Simulated scan of single mutants.
Amino acid sequence: MNHIAAKLTVAAFSLGLATEAMATEWNVSVWGKRRAFTEHVHKLAELVEQKTNGEFTMNISYGGLSKNTENLDGISIGAFEMAQFCAGYHADKNRAITVLELPFLGVNTLAEEVAVSHAVYAHPAVAKEMAQWNARMLMTSPMPQYNLVGTGKARHKISEFGGMRVRATGGIGEAFRAVGGVPTSVTSSEAYQAMESGVVDTVAFAQHAHLSFGTINEADWWTANLNPGTVNCPIVVNIDAYDALSDAEREALDSSVDESIAYYLDNYGELLTRWDAVLAEKGVEKVMISDEELAEFKKVAGDPIQQAWIKEMSAQGMPAQELFDLVNDTLAKTRAGN
């Protein structure tokens, strides 16, 4: 009997090891702190764990695995399996998706931002470029149009942007440069300190980031309708890690994207509805730029920058016009569907 019991014990122990070995655990690199910008990552992890009965889990790390500007590098070497990054942090590594950061694309809602982002992510040129970093696009982190918070006297005219030191990356930074601003690309985590110390006069962020990184606490005013563009920040997975998933795990991951995005949109929508209350609470002046000034800004910083991007990227062998047209075509189809 003792011999049989010993065999059963060994068998049970071996089965336990096999079960444990079958479990999949991914590390996910994000930054800052948990906020509206990362809620879809948490929802994705929750859904995947539920669908796989706990056999596929994700450890979400806020800055513990990598700097935000180095997340794509970490993915490329397999330091972690999933990460979030923003195209403007290293435009040379992800040229194709910088089309989504061009100023004045005319994207009006978060749902439209999701549609154009995922259409571009699905383009073969994007997949090919990301593969150089062993990265596969999974989903976007949709953000509303960026607007400025600033210190000192409020700026109501585009001519007042001359010499303005602004934290802005990618196409938004180029838009401010076109009207005489002086953009700097300090990371989101460094923006508050840059503003507090006077390194910058203004910071361009979406609403959640002004809250999360504290720039709203230094602000005297906020532009409610400048809307020059936004930053595009994908969630990517390491290709080797993705390919190593079982069919069931891969299905659990892929099938959870749409629900995670929907959750994100609902959550961010709640933030947008209470934004005016946040401004009032913190004593921040709400600045409305006139239609004439906005038209001037778009004339100087819209089409010229878009056309320059198309020319530059085409010269580098990218299907730039095709990508740009894809954004506009997707916008049209999305609005027609609504």
Rank of each mutant, 00 (worst) to 15 (best):
A209Y: 11
L253D: 08
E259H: 01
P234W: 04
D291P: 11
D240N: 14
L294D: 06
P234T: 08
A244K: 06
G269L: 04
E249D: 13
L272T: 14
E285F: 14
Y242S: 12
I235C: 01
L245E: 02
L279R: 04
Y264G: 08
L265N: 09
M288R: 10
G214R: 00
Y242D: 03
S246I: 13
L211E: 11
G283A: 08
D243S: 03
A277H: 02
V231S: 14
T223C: 10
R274T: 15
F213W: 13
I235V: 10
V284T: 09
A241T: 09
I261T: 11
G269S: 06
N225K: 04
V237W: 06
N267R: 15
I261A: 09
V287C: 11
T273G: 08
T223F: 08
V257D: 07
E249V: 05
N225R: 04
A209V: 11
L245D: 02
I239W: 03
L253C: 00
V284K: 04
D243G: 09
V278R: 09
V231A: 14
E285S: 14
D220F: 04
K282N: 12
E218G: 02
L245T: 05
N238H: 10
I239A: 02
N238F: 07
W221K: 02
T215C: 15
V287K: 04
L279M: 07
Q207P: 03
A241F: 08
D276T: 01
S260E: 09
A219S: 10
R250L: 12
W275D: 05
L279H: 01
S290T: 12
Y263I: 04
H210R: 09
A262G: 01
E281S: 03
D276L: 00
E251P: 06
N227V: 02
D247I: 12
W275M: 03
L253T: 02
L211D: 02
S212N: 11
V237Y: 03
Q207D: 09
N238R: 05
R250I: 05
I239Y: 09
A277M: 08
L265K: 05
L272D: 12
G269V: 07
E293D: 11
A248N: 12
Y263N: 01
T230Y: 05
S256I: 05
W221R: 07
V278E: 10
D276A: 03
V287Y: 04
A262H: 13
D266H: 15
S255K: 12
D266V: 10
D258R: 13
D254F: 14
L211Y: 10
V278M: 10
V257K: 07
C233Q: 06
D240K: 12
D258N: 14
A241I: 02
D220M: 08
N238W: 05
D258Y: 12
A219V: 02
G229M: 04
E251R: 08
V287S: 08
H210C: 08
L265V: 12
Y268S: 05
Y263P: 02
D254K: 14
F297R: 02
L272Q: 14
A262P: 05
V236M: 06
D220E: 15
P228L: 10
L245G: 00
A224V: 01
L226I: 00
H210V: 06
S290H: 13
L226H: 00
I235A: 01
D220T: 11
S256H: 00
I261R: 07
K282C: 09
L279G: 03
V236E: 03
E281H: 07
K286G: 13
S256A: 13
I261W: 06
L211F: 13
D266R: 14
D254H: 15
D276Y: 00
A248P: 09
